[in-house]
Design a protein around this nucleic acid. Structure first.
Lengths: 219, 219
DNA sequence: ACGTTATTCAATTGATTAATTGAATTATTG
DNA sequence: CAATAATTCAATTAATCAATTGAATAACGT
């Protein structure tokens, strides 16, 4: 075996450190959740319905690949993505997956239909209507995710509090709800809640990262 | 377990189909080689120094994830990337890996030093000098890779034929050699060969995909 | 110092993966 | 039709991985 072959093998072993992190559905979901903002093990455990020990083990794997880092806050260990570029990378991973695996589109379509979801508003149409002051953009993610990052001009009402705050929404404008992105159902559920109350509401498929990627492509 | 949880699990299992493909160093190398153009199992086997049976099994995994597809040419099965977006994705995967894993830079630096490589020419400097007609850009990859795609203005002299063709190179201009990209040593070796013959030669770190990404960022 | 909360570690178990080896298959040629 | 070349398949083996369970650790509050 030549020294060049050994060098190549060593190099690709390093690349595979990241690759291995992406081989588990659970770790991919954790990375997506952390794209929305830092979270504790407990929060990740509850959101993914995995045991705390299991979440912790997956986080150790992601640490080992340097995709995440942590800070401590009292007894809480707060994990976050090691670099914003990793959420960009997750976007491109999802993009490749959606393009190559038609099963993903089928699964999404089946579930959105099951959820009673109408067609979402197009992002460019939303941006135009926001500029004209015609719509209210509602961020229905947890407030800490909104505080981490959100589409400018959006109002934050976490979905758990939506029922309580419907009366505080401005009247005479359409409402558009968005959440974590194409693989999150909060916006769809929020639209159902508002339609039940007679509010003309739509959902946005994209999340804040997809919005940013979209606006960066316009420049 | 809620239907939403089942839906999420199903979705992420699909994403992990691609993720699993990226967990093997061997498959990552195969994907990089196919980014340079379609290849047969035999060519991949020889280039990666893996057995034909092993290469074939890895290709089945990549097929299963829809990252590659194949055509038949006589007894040859020619594999290629299923979509050009996959080589873009490989660029972003490598970018994340290089950023997060300093070991990669160390391994590269160690080997380029071992290979006697000087500092490469910057891509923007190269493009300026090419525009002024000051340098000859040499593509030292196999000719079929050059024919698949190459940096415009480059001349193709595969490295195995470089010694034979040195006399046909124009005199009075600097030579810049490039190959498959940052994880390929052909350009470094080509520069050594030319310097041995008294030719003022430099290497370019980037390959054709990195060049295209770079020029797309200028627009 | 002790109890509590949050998290990590270690051992175990069952499942999955990677490489090898030899057989089987596919396409071509004479 | 048989031989050849290229590739794939199947079985085996060893290594790795994922989830669970219970213990251990770390930080905080009283």
């Amino acid at each position: 075996m030549s020294t060049e072959r050994m060098w190549k093998d060593q190099l690709y072993l390093e690349f595979a450190r990241v690759g291995k992190s992406l081989s588990s559905p659970k770790r991919l979901e954790i990375l997506d959740l952390l794209s929305q903002g830092p979270k504790s093990v407990d929060v990740l455990s509850k959101t993914t319905e995995m045991s705390i020990a299991n979440v912790s083990q997956h986080l150790q794997t992601l640490l080992e690949a340097r995709l995440v880092r942590f800070t401590k806050k009292g007894t809480f260990v707060i994990y976050e993505l090691a670099d914003p570029a990793i959420s960009d990378f997750m976007l491109s991973l999802h993009s490749v997956c959606e393009k190559q695996l038609i099963e993903i589109r089928r699964i999404k379509a089946e579930f959105l239909q099951h959820n009673g979801s109408a067609e979402p508003i197009q992002l460019d149409v939303l941006l135009e209507r926001m500029e004209r002051g015609e719509v209210i953009l509602l961020d229905v993610r947890p407030k800490d995710e909104y505080e981490t990052d959100h589409i400018p001009g959006a109002i934050s009402i976490p979905i758990e509090e939506l029922e309580k705050h419907l009366s505080s929404l401005p009247t005479g404008k359409d409402i558009v709800a968005y959440c974590r992105g194409p693989y999150c159902l909060m916006s769809s559920e929020a639209v159902e809640i508002m339609k039940t109350r007679g509010i003309n509401a739509h959902r946005l498929n994209e999340g804040v990262h997809e919005w940013r990627q979209f606006t960066e492509h316009l420049q």
